[in-house]
Amino acid sequence: MKVGLFIPCFVNELYPHVAMATLELLEGYGVDVAYPMEQSCCGQPLANNGDSSGACDAALRFTGVFKDFDYVVAPSGSCVSHVTHHYPWYIADNADFQRLQPRVFEIVEFLQDVLKVDKLPKPVHFPHKVSIHQSCHGLRELHHASPSELMIPYQSRLERILQLVDGIEIGQPERRDECCGFGGTFSVDEADVSVAMGRDRVAQHEATGAEYIVGADPSCLMHMGGIIRHNGRAIRPLHVVEILTGRGGAA
């Protein structure tokens, strides 16, 4: 099995340790992982601003870069969801994409559904309380958990995978899956609403008594992290792979 590591553009520049943790985690399970250097952005910022021509070209490029891998895995629910759920708006008829689409996974999905892991590569002791941040695209498009709006049985991928960590205490904020307000370019187009939402979200996570906000989407964590730092708060955002590789808390 050959896995292509898809590292979203902003994660490449700003969160290299999250990318590295993803790589090490996969390798820890004995997976053969390669990172194609010619990858760039999945095109979501273009698509979400109505540039369908740019979004289409980005989708074709992504497909070309990754089409020969057995699986593609990324540490971002939103970017994965853009590929699996929104590329069809642009390149539905592309045969390479049709073959690729079912093989693109967010890292937690991949661990649970493809590798079907029941333990971590190396045991991790993390004696801290975390508050789970359900990022919207992972939640409502990839079905990472049951969204609070739907009257369906409760499940949560993040809670399940974090149960493999020793000593961890898992909490949930009030309004368990309200958006943090990042929203891509929304965060600057509608900066005031974005920050107002983020402040509320951080406060809800803090109210659980958690030391860390844990999520599977670096963009939401970046946004909340900026608000946390600006206001000198103590809670820290962490990507789930940082905990699963035992790097959590070091950052």
Partner: peptide
């Protein structure tokens, strides 16, 4: 910046990108 004006710091800038580290 539009990002920071309403009260949100820019992300910390790491020394190297993942691509650099991976290479």
């Amino acid at each position: 910046t539009a990002w920071s004006r309403p009260g949100r710091d820019l992300p910390e800038m790491p020394e190297h990108s993942f691509k650099e580290l991976y290479r």
